[in-house]
Design a protein around this nucleic acid. Structure first.
Lengths: 209, 209
DNA sequence: GCCCTTACGCTACGAGTCGTAGCGAAACCA
DNA sequence: TGGTTTCGCTACGACTCGTAGCGTAAGGGC
């Protein structure tokens, strides 16, 4: 969310918040039309109606800009109480799949993750802006299921953190792999099957059809 | 595996197979040292000891070259019979994690997947060279578990295909997300927890510790 | 309302990469 | 040996990058 290169003091002309929003929207628009590799900062600046130098004053480069532009997409995720753990999981996974079906998320997300393998600062930025922000969904669904008696209460906070991380990697990883690597839609049928495996396990899922 | 741009006839001077191997090895070497974004074909050609034009005669571009270079890494995956489904899963997941821990796989794989979101031909290439090639592991582990009586035999071939695809996305997706997005190691402890969830499901896994 | 500070738009620049074309020489098959 | 293709080399125009320098605009502190 923050613009990486901070304004230095509280005095002087403040940065235009409207420009910030226009730039991020223009970045997503360019991601849709051009994809990651053909996206240039000049093009984004032109679409946003600002000068190229304005971009460089706020973001260190293409990587950081796209992370911020993509991160906003995932803030739309919600976890309404649908009555059961299975229904909650299916609901949020379908939302996640819908976001990953959008071209600006598809081309942007994987690209910055790829770049982050050689850039520790970028990795931290992704973690803070995207990953950790959405772990709240796992935490909330989990405590809700515990309140319903669907999951046992865990006492050890360290074990809890490990479990939450694990669930997050399984859920997010499966959806991402399905939509981006296997390149097939995570539709309702697939989500039902996935939720079944997640809750019941391999043996329990294929058994009683 | 094939070089995308085929030699036209059986006559004339054949292409050097040694050059092919040298180029792919040089590509992996460059991926380690430079990463995806700073990798240039001139650099690869220089490392491999061939001319830049030779690269362009065999591969359409950087994307196709890196797919072939990375695909070879995953052919090392094996599925030895370790006596139980859980042990088999743990074994192959640890191998997969070890490959994804190598920098040439980390930076290369995600980058080409990102590019493939806007390039259908590249997507097909990845699917053929990497994804479908490794689905054999799921098929083999599954039939082995069925022979042991750990999994029920499925009769409908269409349902079987769906299940295999689902399992593959869950396993591969979870490991990829853990190592590349969460950027934490998929070590033995994590793999044990993951296998537990995969086989027993969420409720069964956190219950009997 | 004035001055100080900063953001902004614009232009220009050197450096680097891209993919292609054209050439002579070398290697292989029939 | 003749025909065919690959290979190494060089050069090329087009493009993108990130930065610097300038004059101007827009705020905040007093």
């Amino acid at each position: 969310m923050q613009s990486r290169i901070p304004a230095r003091r509280a005095t002087g002309r403040p940065r235009s918040a409207a420009a910030d929003a226009a730039i991020l929207a223009a970045t997503r628009e360019a991601l849709v039309e051009l994809g990651w590799s053909k996206l240039t900062l000049v093009d984004v600046a032109c679409r946003a109606g600002v000068a190229k130098t304005t971009l460089y004053r706020r973001w260190a480069g293409k990587n950081e800009l796209v992370v911020d532009a993509v991160a906003e997409l995932f803030d739309a995720l919600r976890l309404p109480d649908r009555g059961s753990l299975a229904a909650d999981v299916e609901g949020v996974v379908l939302q996640f799949a819908a976001i990953l079906a959008r071209p600006e998320a598809r081309s942007g997300l994987m690209a910055v993750v790829a770049e982050s393998t050689r850039d520790e600062a970028l990795r931290d930025r992704i973690r803070a802006s995207i990953v950790d922000r959405q772990k709240r969904l796992v935490l909330e669904g989990r405590s809700r299921a515990q309140a319903r008696g669907e999951l046992p209460a865990e006492t050890d906070p360290e074990a809890t953190a490990r479990t939450v991380d694990l669930i997050f990697d399984v859920v997010a990883g499966a959806v991402v792999h399905r939509t981006l690597v296997s390149a097939e839609p995570a539709d309702e049928e697939w989500v039902r099957g996935f939720t079944r495996v997640l809750l019941l396990g391999l043996a329990g899922a294929v058994g009683p059809a």
